[in-house]
Design a protein around this nucleic acid. Structure first.
Lengths: 345, 345
DNA sequence: CTGTTAGCGCCTTCAC
DNA sequence: GTGAAGGCGCTAACAG
């Protein structure tokens, strides 16, 4: 009876169409398609074959409307074009896809306004959960986040809060390890170049720096701790050079690789040689680090794994399980930018 | 009048709830919320205020179900952790967000199977359109893509097809410009190191190389054209070195920056100096290029703009407008890795 | 201007 | 096993 006209394009085949073609009710089709045992095996097979032939593609939107589950998550990053971010996104996406979730990606450009706008948009789309990467936004926002009633996991952000879960790298331990490496090489005038616009992680790395010095019984010298006020990491690295020279540093631990690279470039322009005249160690182990000259010694953050773990945590939360915050270990990667201090003339 | 009980969490306020609270029908609420003129201004204002107070967030899924428009697009990339990809994603996302679209991001890892799986997933979610980035997948797949009945735009992929639209960089012109630069510096033994697993763009860049030589009346020497068979770009760059030396090249145009960097590293390990002993020029202008030593001379691709244009094209397509494929101009970025050939001893 | 009625595509009791 | 009926949240005629 049904008119078998080929639908022009964007073939909107629904379970009703299949039901009509199969001479059953749409309930039965629905069951068959979800492999429900409550349906005759043969008719189920027939229905599935029919669905296949008719080019049926389930409409997840409709499903979601009734099940109240969208199987989507929202991922907020500061900027996609950040070499630190990409591997994390990769990790999130890989696990999400494997588990049947799709991910909405949006960048906030570190603008609080945009960041909450993004979250609101995610909410309108009824994402099942949200992952926020390296947000610099504070409490006012995580508060709103929690109102949404969906689980949130934060990566690299210690912004605390009752219903906020987090995964991050071991900033403290990593920093300690970096400075220990410098100490073991024989340095005693070791500087730290920090980042003023990432307070929490900066605090931890600075603390690691202090702990390492402390253990080596080297007194803390405020002149060796610098927080440039520029906007970009590279710029900040460059700006730090004169202060370092003045303070008589022979080695520097930089908040991150980009700063380290900026510093190294500035040093070269200034006629200094790294590591001969100045040892430099970074943090993050971004891809570029292995290709600059000299190749940068740094602290590796397991970024892909951080993404995976964040997604895994979200999945657990969605399954109603209990979860604990995770802190992933870092790893010292020794390359060419660090060496023993030059013996005095 | 309305009971102001705070809903526990995941406050599922619907237009019906608002209707009840306001003493009107849900149609009126719907109209008021969409700023329809068919509603008394006062009651509309009241309703909107009420919605605000009750913490209402429209459910786009439900809207989409009836309007048949999801305001989502799917973006397929080979790998997110590719420095070439990120800026493009950024460009797509920026415009999409501005226009009220959300973007699903998925990576295919250059696996045809995964790539079509991703597209199927997008289809189930009823995305309004799809953007595919640098797909190495061929016709069988774009065919299926078109069956979906949603507009597709391809970035950096010449795979042709009736209903396929594309935006790409001017590979031919860029390559010509790269080689011209080398010619102008005085080189005559100029090599090309190509990429065997990106046939279309490789063909264009090789053709640009030939055209440039041709215009300079320099005969084409097959020994100077190398296509390493390794898997990674860096590796391929390294592998090319011995052949280049053997062929007596004084300058090399590499398919992309990563190859160029691999080649430069190999050259250094081999005791050669770039650009003194060998001039090297890349293609892409990835971020790293400005930080390696020597800083890499290269051909810039306007990646962010490519992303934007692709999204703009999709938007136009969704608006039913006619569109034309776009080819964006490249730009020669002269840095430190190219110089005149050394005068013979 | 506003309410009523349908229905988008699907899942889910609840009877048969 | 299977069908009928109701509803997820929302928009869109169609009457008033």
């Amino acid at each position: 009876m049904a008119v078998e006209k080929t639908l022009p394009k964007g073939q909107r085949v629904s379970i009703k169409d299949i039901a009509r073609a199969a001479g059953v009710s749409h309930s039965t089709v629905s069951r068959a398609l979800r492999n429900s045992p409550l349906v005759n095996a043969e008719t189920a097979a027939y229905i599935r074959r029919l669905a296949q032939e008719m080019g049926y593609t389930p409409n997840i939107l409709a499903q979601s409307l009734v099940t109240q589950r969208t199987y989507t998550i929202g991922l907020v990053v500061t900027s996609i074009a950040d070499p630190f971010v990409d591997a994390i996104v990769d990790g999130v996406e890989a696990l999400a896809t494997r588990e049947g979730y799709s991910v909405f990606l949006s960048s906030s450009h570190a603008d609080p306004g945009r960041e909450i706008a993004v979250v609101e948009a995610f909410h309108r789309r009824r994402v099942d959960g949200v992952i926020v990467l390296a947000s610099r936004v504070g409490s006012l926002y995580t508060e709103r986040l929690q109102e949404l009633g969906v689980p949130i996991v934060l990566i690299n952000n210690q912004a605390g809060g009752e219903y906020v879960y987090s995964v991050s790298a071991d900033n403290l331990g990593g920093a300690r390890e970096a400075v220990c490496h410098l100490l073991e090489l024989g340095h005693t005038r070791i500087a730290y170049v920090g980042c003023h616009f990432r307070p929490p992680s900066n605090r931890h790395r600075l603390e690691g720096y202090r702990q390492a010095l402390n253990r080596a019984a080297i007194p803390y010298d405020p002149n060796l701790v610098i927080h440039p006020r520029g906007f970009s990491d590279l710029e900040n690295g460059q700006q730090a050079l004169p202060h370092l020279l003045e303070a008589g540093a022979t080695a520097v631990f930089c908040y991150n690789d980009r700063m380290a690279i900026g510093l190294i470039n500035a040093a070269r322009d200034h006629g200094l040689r790294v590591p001969d005249d100045l040892s430099v160690i970074g943090f993050d182990d971004i891809e570029m680090s292995a290709f600059v000259t000299p190749r940068l010694t740094t602290i590796h953050q397991p970024r892909y794994e951080m993404g995976r773990r964040a997604m895994a945590m979200l999945l657990a939360l969605l399954a109603g399980e209990q979860v604990q915050d995770v802190v992933l270990p870092t790893e010292l990667i020794i390359r060419e930018s660090t060496a023993p201090p030059r013996s005095e003339p």
